[in-house]
C-alpha cells in the first residue's frame, strides 16, 4: 500500500492529473462539436465529389502516427516570428508566441494537435450515423417549414444521441491515454506543463525504474477509464428508460 500512499501525496501526480483533465475538457467538446458539424455539412449539403475530397483530406491525419504528427507540428509551431503558425496569427495582428517554450501555449498546442488529429476520425463516425437517417424525415421537416438549423436540432441531433455518447466516451478515454503526442512534442515540458498521466507512468517505470510506483499510477488510470465507461453506461440506461417511459 506504500506505493498508493506515495501516489496520493505526490504533487507531480496531481499536476499531471490536472493537465490531463484540462486536455480532456478542451479537446472533447471541441472535437465532438466540430466533427459533428462538419459531418452534417458534408452529409446534407455537400454530397458530391468536392465533399468526398474534403472527407478524404480530413481523414489523412487519422492514418498517420502521433509521433509523425508531433514531429511535423513541432516545426509548424516553431517559435520564430517567421514560423508557419506565427505567420498565420500574424495575419490577424497577433504577436508571435513561443508555443512550445512556455507553459500555457505548450498545453494549448498539445490540445490543438489532439483535435486536429481526431476530428477526421469522429467525423467519419458521425457521417456514417447521419447517412442512416432516412431522407424522408428531412423532407417531412421541410414540408413543416423547418429551416436547416431547425432540422439539425430537431431531426439530426436527437437521432445521433447514441453516436454522440460513443464519441464523447471514446474521446474522453483517449484523452486520458495521451502519450505519444506529449512524449514527442514536449517531453512533458516546459517544466511539467504538459506532463500527462501515461507519461508519468512511463517515466517512473522506465526512467526512474520504480515499477511498483508506476503500477500504482496505472491503477489510477484504470480507475478513471472504468469510471468513464461506467458513467456512460449509467447515462445511457437512464436516457433509454426515460424514452421508454415516455412512449
Amino acid at each position: 500500500m506504500g506505493n498508493y500512499q506515495a501516489v496520493l501525496k505526490d504533487p507531480y501526480i496531481t499536476s499531471s492529473l490536472i493537465n490531463t483533465g484540462i486536455y480532456a475538457v478542451i479537446v472533447v467538446p471541441v472535437q465532438t462539436v466540430l466533427s459533428m458539424v462538419i459531418a452534417y455539412v458534408l452529409a446534407r449539403k455537400c454530397k458530391n465529389r468536392f465533399g468526398n475530397f474534403v472527407r478524404s483530406a480530413l481523414f489523412i491525419p487519422v492514418i498517420t502516427s502521433m509521433v509523425l504528427t508531433a514531429a511535423v507540428w513541432r516545426l509548424l509551431l516553431a517559435g520564430d516570428p517567421e514560423g508557419v503558425i506565427n505567420s498565420i496569427i500574424g495575419l490577424f495582428g497577433m504577436e508571435p508566441v513561443n508555443w512550445l517554450g512556455s507553459s500555457w501555449p505548450a498545453l494549448f498546442s498539445v490540445c490543438l494537435i489532439g483535435i486536429w488529429k481526431n476530428v477526421g476520425y469522429f467525423m467519419v463516425i458521425f457521417y456514417a450515423g447521419m447517412m442512416d437517417i432516412p431522407v424522408s424525415l428531412y423532407e417531412a421537416a421541410t414540408v413543416d417549414g423547418a429551416g436547416s438549423a431547425r432540422q439539425f436540432f430537431s431531426v439530426t441531433l436527437p437521432l445521433l444521441k447514441p453516436i454522440t455518447y460513443l464519441v464523447v466516451t471514446l474521446g474522453t478515454i483517449w484523452s486520458f491515454q495521451v502519450f505519444d503526442l506529449v512524449y514527442t512534442l514536449t517531453g512533458g515540458g516546459p517544466g511539467r506543463a504538459t506532463m500527462t498521466l501515461v507519461l508519468t507512468i512511463y517515466n517512473s517505470a522506465f526512467k526512474d525504474f520504480k515499477m511498483g510506483y508506476a503500477s500504482a499510477v496505472s491503477m489510477v488510470l484504470l480507475a478513471i477509464v472504468l469510471f468513464i465507461s461506467f458513467l456512460q453506461k449509467v447515462v445511457f440506461r437512464e436516457r433509454d428508460e426515460g424514452r421508454r417511459k415516455h412512449v
Partner: peptide
Amino acid sequence: MMPGQVILIP
C-alpha cells in the same frame, strides 16, 4: 476495457 497503457508494466 483495459487500455494498453494500464497493462504496460505487467
